[in-house]
Amino acid sequence: MDFPYIVEPRRDTGLYNAKLGIWLFLASEVMLFGALFSAYVLLRVGAEPGMWPHGWLNVYIGTANTIVLITSSITTVMAWVSCKLRQYRRFKFFHALTIVLAMTFVCIKSYEYHDKFTHYEITLANGKFADGHLVERSKDFDLAKKTGRVTIHGHEVDHEVELMDMQRPEARHIQREELTIPATDIKKMERYGPWHHTYLAIYFTLTALHAFHVICGALVIGFLWGPGSRMWHTDPERFTNRIEVSGLFWHFVDLIWIFLFPVLYLL
């Protein structure tokens, strides 16, 4: 039994089956990310004045990731164009580049996550706050038993609100130094995980979901580059359609990042 409209488009819709399918799927994805973006807006609007963070993320790293994804969308399109022009070797080259760029994105994102999970806000017994990246803990460090000490590379402030806007001119010129704090002086010590602030909760939710999409997209592209590319020799037209469909998904993932980057890093 032959399925119709696998290769040629249906006359009334102008679409072949897979393209219609991917657009329906992308519509559901728009609803998913749309709901999360709405959650972000509501959390931000509902935050107390001055308590929504600014400048907690490294804009330059975010920019590097943006460049990586924009470049990967160009290589995906070039792979599709190569298929249309029946240039198999060029297709292989561009699709391999897309996979490398996807992996680069994931590596950079992992570095950013690591940076956040080694970043601590320490509430001191004297009411002040120390903020910075963990350098080392003494072997006997135990916050519950109040033994040992911890060393961070950061700075100290009088009020927590001063840690919120790291984009203001004074905050950008803060001199960070190594601070060794005994456990007896620490009231509370918390890393910059999703539990630390609602901003970080929505940041991790949105970016982790996006990174999951990047990994899934890279797996599909990897399959079409490897074992899936056998179809090229039997049905090149249908294979080209598959590349277009994977390219549409990849562009959607890239487009989400184009909205995520300014919302989370710049505004």
């Binding site: 657009w23 943006t66 399109v77 599709w80 277009e244 390219g247 549409l248 562009h251 487009l255």
Partner: peptide, 18 residues
């Protein structure tokens, strides 16, 4: 919408972002 059209939308938005 083909990949061509989506790519143009994407590049337009990317240049606006840049």
């Amino acid at each position: 919408m083909s990949l061509k059209a989506f790519h143009i939308v994407f590049i337009t938005l990317s240049s606006a972002l840049a």
